[in-house]
Amino acid sequence: MAGTRDASPRTLDAYRRDVAGFLGFLTDHHGARPGRAALSAVTTQDMRAWLARERGRGLSARSVARALSAVRSFYGWLDTAEGITNPAVTATRAPRPAARLPRPVDTEAARALIDRVELQNPQDWIAARDVAVVTLLYACGLRISEALGLPRRAAPLPEALTIRGKGGKERMVPVLPAARDAVDAYLRLCPHDPGPDGPLFLGQRGGALNPRLVQKVLEQARMQLGLPASATPHALRHSFATHLLEAGGDLRAIQELLGHASLSTTQAYTAVDQARLMDIYARAHPKGAG
């Protein structure tokens, strides 16, 4: 089949099974084994019914996408070898795999990460810088790009920061004393002065701090603590939302703090079960409690 020339034997076997399953579906669907005319006449509705059956069998979106790829390759071969074409097959879109959101760390693990980050660099000012960045991610729920995009004139940090997030949307984020203190400690030690319009967080030579360095220092800290690979900079923002919600925070308020365009996105970024979410919603909106 087209697109499988360099595939491994295992992949070829999987493709054969996928195509055989598709042909078996057409047989069941139309009550007869599909010939040339039937293969040419497969409709968009047929394809949707097949995809629905595959999902109904418990296959993941990724497995269904692989099966669709096999069927498309099969039709590519039919086009070349038999002159059989079918735009409905080639136009069918695979289901999107579910987005893999970062898992939050618990409160104790977040504190341990911040403490451990301070030990990763022998230069005091760099250690203080890393602590300040990580504290901002967790205490204010910032994206790493938002934290590293802060200008020097933002310090000393006010009680609330104006953050420009995705799409240029602005939001107000309260600044906890711990975050303000961490930034102050870093600035007292920092040997560089980029001026008020320069970046707040600097690299070793005085330029803008590379986000990869923040990711790396967290990688080192989480490995030393035995935390999973999911404990990333973005997971700290995720943890910010989760811990606020677990403490009884209002979903709408958390949505605003995170800068999400929709409430559904905020719900997806929390590790609280659906019953907990509905309980909070029912208390906030008693008319909708049913």
Rank of each mutant, 00 (worst) to 15 (best):
226 G>I: 07
214 V>I: 15
240 F>H: 10
246 E>L: 12
211 P>M: 01
234 H>V: 05
245 L>V: 15
228 P>E: 04
233 P>F: 13
250 D>H: 13
246 E>T: 03
220 Q>I: 00
221 A>D: 01
217 V>S: 09
209 L>M: 15
228 P>G: 02
206 G>K: 10
228 P>N: 03
230 S>T: 15
247 A>F: 13
195 G>D: 00
236 L>E: 02
226 G>S: 11
243 H>C: 13
195 G>M: 01
250 D>N: 14
199 P>N: 00
227 L>Y: 09
244 L>I: 11
200 L>Q: 00
202 L>V: 01
220 Q>C: 06
224 Q>E: 14
235 A>P: 08
225 L>G: 10
207 G>L: 05
221 A>L: 02
217 V>E: 09
249 G>V: 07
250 D>Q: 04
216 K>H: 14
196 P>A: 12
202 L>W: 09
226 G>W: 05
216 K>Y: 14
237 R>Q: 06
231 A>D: 03
205 R>G: 11
199 P>S: 08
231 A>R: 07
220 Q>K: 15
213 L>N: 14
243 H>F: 10
204 Q>W: 12
208 A>V: 10
207 G>R: 12
242 T>I: 06
245 L>Q: 00
230 S>H: 14
245 L>K: 00
229 A>N: 03
196 P>R: 05
227 L>H: 04
211 P>H: 10
239 S>N: 12
201 F>P: 04
228 P>H: 05
206 G>T: 03
249 G>D: 05
217 V>R: 13
229 A>M: 00
229 A>H: 10
208 A>R: 15
221 A>C: 02
206 G>N: 08
242 T>R: 04
246 E>G: 11
219 E>W: 12
237 R>L: 03
202 L>Y: 07
221 A>M: 03
209 L>A: 06
250 D>P: 01
240 F>T: 00
214 V>Q: 11
214 V>E: 12
227 L>E: 01
242 T>N: 08
200 L>M: 05
233 P>R: 07
251 L>Y: 08
209 L>V: 10
242 T>F: 08
220 Q>T: 11
200 L>K: 01
232 T>K: 02
225 L>W: 10
204 Q>T: 10
236 L>N: 07
246 E>N: 15
203 G>N: 13
242 T>A: 06
227 L>F: 11
227 L>G: 04
215 Q>A: 12
250 D>C: 02
228 P>K: 04
209 L>D: 08
236 L>G: 10
236 L>S: 07
240 F>G: 02
205 R>L: 10
